[in-house]
Design a protein around this nucleic acid. Structure first.
Lengths: 193, 193
DNA sequence: GTAATTTGTTAACCTAAGTGAACGTACTAT
DNA sequence: ATAGTACGTTCACTTAGGTTAACAAATTAC
């Protein structure tokens, strides 16, 4: 499990043994069972998460209905907006599967940055890359119909469609569960001919 | 003009005179007239931009039609996706207004990071903040109807609606120009009662 | 094991967005 | 000045997503 994290980091920067040990000594690892809520609307957390195994999701409750807007799976990181704004969170974070994650704290992060400036480089590179990827995803979302969005998802993250409930996928695609169901019907009709 | 940039940076980190001079000596500033294209689809640029004055936009050409997906105004930065992926760009960047921007290059950036590690902190903080903001915008987009998206835009970026052509706004909102026109009609009817 | 809840699907009806075309106005180019 | 293009709006028509409700299947709780 520890190796997963170090292996991931090694794709971006080279770590000395001292640095590897520094990371492991932080005891960042946490096991979270399916359904557990890591952050609630209205709370002000300082924790950031990184998924080693499993799946987290963010969701809003709007007019009493859950609206899932993002899924985070293996090697994805989340820094909740409230960590940066220091305002109460507008959304929830919970585990859709039994998951193993690492938990980071800004003060701890700061300490690491000072001890090992390389870590700050890593974080800069990771967030720049994420930002660019996120922009492309947003662009694709804007320029696609719901049906195309679903088709893209089928190609780009086929695992998600298997591991996540349909009604959560629906709001992730910006539609209602009923529409997703219809749309799936349309597609399989086309394929069957 | 130079002061705009230093003032912006000073919101995030404190610069010594040497550091300020280092930035200014880079001669990053460029004036771009309305309509000029900074990046074309298929090109592989290494330049990043920061808007001091004016407005840039990114757009795709899909089935022969321009689809505008983002606007960048004063104090917004863009690192085109192709700079990071090193693949040909999928979109265009052009100026919707006469603009003054700074142009940055990865090698130059790297040099600055080494000379003044503070700059890397700045870039990390900026991209982390942007990423979080971008996520919230995406969430809001997903959970809103086109009409609500327009209403949000009216509140959150009223300037954009004034300074940008309607048909560009439309695709930015994920709809056709005709729908935007109708939707605006509906809204002003409601207000007039 | 049974009841209760959650989940996914289907149907009927409503509403709004997409499409294609037309038209007036405002820019641009020469 | 004039022709040409770009832009915004409107219309009629089509299409697909939203809404409400009902129901079966799967999960969860007790």
């Amino acid at each position: 499990m520890h190796n997963i994290l170090l292996e991931f980091i090694s794709k971006y920067i080279t770590l000395s043994d001292a640095e590897e040990n520094a990371i492991l000594s932080l005891n960042l690892f946490r096991s979270v069972p399916k359904g557990s809520v890591l952050l609630k609307e209205g709370e002000s957390s300082t924790e950031g998460y990184f998924v080693l195994k499993g799946c987290l999701r963010t969701y809003y409750i709007i007019d009493g209905n859950e609206k899932t807007t993002a899924f985070y799976t293996e090697m994805d990181g989340i820094t909740p907006n409230c960590v940066l704004t220091k305002l109460p969170s507008e959304y929830f974070i919970s585990a859709t599967e039994d998951s193993i994650i690492t938990v980071a704290d800004p003060s701890l992060e700061q300490e690491m940055f000072e001890k090992f400036p390389k870590f700050e480089s890593l974080c800069r590179i990771l967030s720049e890359e994420l930002l660019a990827k996120q922009q492309v995803r947003f662009d694709q979302f804007k320029t696609s119909t719901p049906e195309l969005r679903y088709q893209h998802l089928l190609k780009q993250r086929p695992d998600l469609i298997q591991r996540v409930p349909q009604h959560q996928l629906a709001s992730f695609l910006g539609i209602t569960p009923q529409s997703l169901s219809r749309l799936r019907g349309r597609i399989s009709e086309k394929k069957t001919g």
